[in-house]
């Protein structure tokens, strides 16, 4: 049965989304691992259906500086994919990819930004590739965009996009660990309600 709001999802459907998150995230972790030359794991994904302010609280301090790589999904699914990483995660990438330490997060050099975009691009596309082959949905991805700024400001973009017709947003979340260290990153998949119906239909859940 088609749903009209996120809250109508039942436990089975939520479990399926967790599974999608886990397969997408696992694939993304493998890709990240081969670029960074380190062991990368993803913690168990979560499925959160939250009000705007709860969603922000869930992710952290709204004024915290983070980097985010943003990709819009279109095709059979629409929504947003966002890879949010803290300074410590970004530093780890800078160090492992470029051998750099102490980069100025607010004044990244072009090569630093390119490295972050590249990481975001690889992580997001491996996530989506795994999801597409599992579910058989065709998803097109926009060119990835990077922003380094306050978490709240960054999240205002998906919240405004998803919040147009809903007072809640749904996030499938997942956190990476590099060599066992949790460095606070979050892989967020934010589908719209219609996309959830498409996914469930493709997977034969009625």
């Amino acid at each position: 049965m088609a749903i009209k709001t996120y809250e109508e999802m039942n436990e089975l459907e939520i479990d399926i989304l967790k599974e999608i998150g886990s397969i997408g995230g696992g694939n993304a972790a493998t890709a990240l691992s081969s670029i960074l030359g380190a062991k990368v794991n993803m913690a168990l994904p979560g499925v959160e259906i939250l009000g705007f302010n709860e969603a922000l609280d869930h992710l952290g301090d709204p004024e915290e500086l983070v980097a985010a790589i943003f990709v819009e999904m279109s095709g059979e699914l629409s929504g947003i994919m966002l890879f949010v990483l803290t300074k410590e995660f970004s530093d780890e990438i800078m160090f492992r990819m470029l051998g750099k330490t102490n980069t100025d997060f607010l004044a990244l050099e072009e090569i630093d930004s390119s490295a972050l975009i590249e990481i975001g691009n690889i992580v997001i596309s491996s996530y989506i590739t795994a999801m597409s082959s599992l579910t058989g949905v065709d998803v097109e991805l926009s060119v990835p965009q990077l922003a380094v700024n306050m978490l709240g400001g960054i999240m205002s973009v998906p919240i405004a996009m998803m919040g147009q017709h809903s007072d809640r947003i749904m996030m499938i979340t997942g956190e990476f660990k590099i060599d066992g260290k949790a460095l606070n990153s979050n892989m967020l998949l934010l589908p719209d309600v219609e996309s959830l119906n498409v996914l469930m239909k493709k997977l034969g859940v009625e």
């Binding site: 705007f52 302010n53 922000l56 709204p62 004024e63 700024n149 306050m150 978490l151 709240g152 400001g153 960054i154 999240m155 205002s156 973009v157 919240i159 405004a160 919040g163 007072d167």
Partner: peptide, 23 residues
């Protein structure tokens, strides 16, 4: 003051809203 929210106060105190992006 949260997202999609409004607060009123008088005489004293500070109203604050964090990290306005496109909002």
């Amino acid at each position: 003051v949260g997202i999609a929210d409004m607060k009123i106060t008088r005489q004293e105190g500070t109203l604050i809203t964090y990290a306005l992006g496109s909002c």
